[in-house]
Amino acid sequence: MLRDIFQKKRKYATLPKEKHVNTAPSVEKTQVPEGLMVKCPKCGAISYSRELTKNLKVCHQCDHHYAMNAFERVSALLDDGQFFEYDNDLRSDDPLSFPDYLNKLESDHQKTGLSEAVVTGEGTIKGFPVVIGVMDSRFRMGSMGSVVGEKIARAIERAIEKNYPVIIFSASGGARMQEGVLSLMQMAKTSAALAKLHKAGGLFISVMTNPTTGGVSASFASLGDYNFAEPGALIGFAGRRIIEQTIRQKLPDDFQTAEFLLKKGQLDKVIHRKEMRNVLGNIVSLHSVKEGI
């Protein structure tokens, strides 16, 4: 038994050098805002794009959290901004021959350089190895189809094997309509993988970012041992418009925000982006103690 623990510890050691891939492309390449300056959609403050990126894409005036793409997220979170990517060779199929689906995939690929709406892999945070998944809402609104579901399930399986914690950053409009019921079933697939992790005693930290809705919110994103969110993130099952139509009344402005859900008892904590690495590192470290005092 004891020996097992130590063996696992050894596995925790740093990743083999040759596996390291610097997946955070240079600033020039990933800079989402096209111009030199960006206007905050919330308060209107103007920031230099470079300053904004340095500030983890948080508005210096009102703290508005701009969307972060998957690679920016990885570099902001993991030690040295590095990780080893899993399964980046999986590509979506068009199982229903859905009108225009393949074209849309291709155009999102061209626009973002991403092969799908989630990037998965492993790296270390504050020295602790973790399996991480980061969704990117620029690709098909972060919707979950077969590839997203499969990549997340495989990442969780690897985490079980290696006894690593899992951290997933969600940013998704929900299930991907163009893959029909196959997308729906990815909710079950990812949740079943988490059932295995749960049974194995593994740690899962879910971080919901703007937006986390529909089939993603109603599956893995809500199943964290810790459910966290970024400030101002829209989180919910049904869309605001549908709810307003159903109940025929206007919803409060803060409805379905992270802060609203925190108040309703649906989240563990809302974490400012600048605190994210510290808080996650701390939680992971709290779980790395395998023996009692």
């Binding site: 060779d89 999986l90 590509r91 092969s115 579901g149 499969e150 196959l182 697939k189």
Partner: peptide, 10 residues
């Protein structure tokens, strides 16, 4: 459920 989904390898 793990088997559900259609995708290709690059």
């Amino acid at each position: 459920f793990k088997a559900m989904g259609k995708y290709n390898l690059l």
